[in-house]
């Protein structure tokens, strides 16, 4: 038996929007502690790990561990239905997800907070997905950069109009994002900056060792679709380890993206 209710249904919509282009199908793993997902993109270069802790739900009940395979695009389509009506407040639907006893379908029910006489039911088919789970050990990172998520998003977008890859380098100077393409080169340096009005506007750089790694911008740009989930993003870098780009979901958990660095032949 799984029942969950999320007052901020918009949050689940944002989560789906952030991962559906990277991963087509994924297993949602439900346990008493919460709702999680780990899935790789089709080329097995990037991975998304999602955690939504049970405490973050208005109501959460999961009697036995279960895994629900879903097509994320289909789920995003269904969740979009909750927000397409302009009269009912689209951004705050309540949501309940109840798998049927056979667990072959999942019933997604939206109830709008401000028009409680309207209930929309959606039933989505579940799928059997043979997904490979990777064991991700805790690691010490050479450098951890926390910066405004909108700034990171803008840098990735700007650089991808010039080159295909980004070199992220952390030194005492700050964090440098560089690219190179047919038309020229681009460098953006962000220095540590904690003298801001709001804490979410700060750029904080923790560096144990200088580090410089190259990544495909296509993936970085895909990760930045999670920007609406959090004002800040944390980028953890270690030489010869995949980068972790983390968006915290307030009081609930996180979406983490892992991306393997490019390596010189």
């Amino acid at each position: 038996m799984l029942e969950l209710r999320l007052v901020q249904g918009s949050l689940l919509k944002k989560v789906l929007e952030s991962i559906k282009d990277l991963v087509n199908d994924a297993n949602f793993d439900c346990s008493a502690t919460g709702f999680s997902l780990q899935a790789m993109d089709s080329s097995h270069v990037a991975l998304v790990a999602l955690l939504l802790r049970s405490e973050g739900f208005e109501h959460y009940r999961c009697d036995r561990n279960m895994s629900m395979g879903m097509n994320l695009n289909n789920m995003a389509k269904m969740l979009k239905c909750a927000g397409n009506d302009d009269i009912i407040t689209p951004s705050r639907p309540m949501m309940a997800v109840t798998p049927s006893p056979s667990c072959s379908k999942v019933q997604v029910r939206f109830t709008c907070c401000f028009a409680q006489d309207k209930i929309a039911d959606f039933e989505m088919k579940l799928m059997d997905i043979d997904s490979e789970h990777l064991g991700i050990p805790e690691a010490e990172y050479h450098a951890i950069v926390r910066m405004p998520s909108s700034e990171f998003s803008r840098i990735c977008k700007d650089l991808s109009s010039i080159g295909d890859t980004v070199v992220i380098s952390v030194t005492k100077e700050g964090v440098r994002f560089s690219t190179r393409g047919d038309i020229g080169t681009a460098n953006v340096v962000c220095r540590q900056n904690t003298t801001v009005d709001k804490p979410e506007e700060a750029t904080i750089i923790e560096m144990n060792e200088p580090v410089s790694l190259t990544f495909a911008l296509r993936y970085m740009n895909s990760f930045t679709k999670a920007t609406p989930l959090s004002n800040t993003v944390t980028i953890s870098l270690s030489s010869e380890l995949p980068v972790v780009v983390e968006y915290k979901i307030a009081e609930m958990g996180y979406v983490r993206f892992y991306l393997a660095p490019k390596i010189e032949d």
Binding site: V45, L134, T214, I263
Partner: peptide, 14 residues
């Protein structure tokens, strides 16, 4: 030239 390794080069399958 740069090579794009897969994640399995860094993490093991569980």
């Amino acid at each position: 030239a740069q090579n794009q390794p897969k994640l399995s080069a860094f993490f093991s399958l569980r």
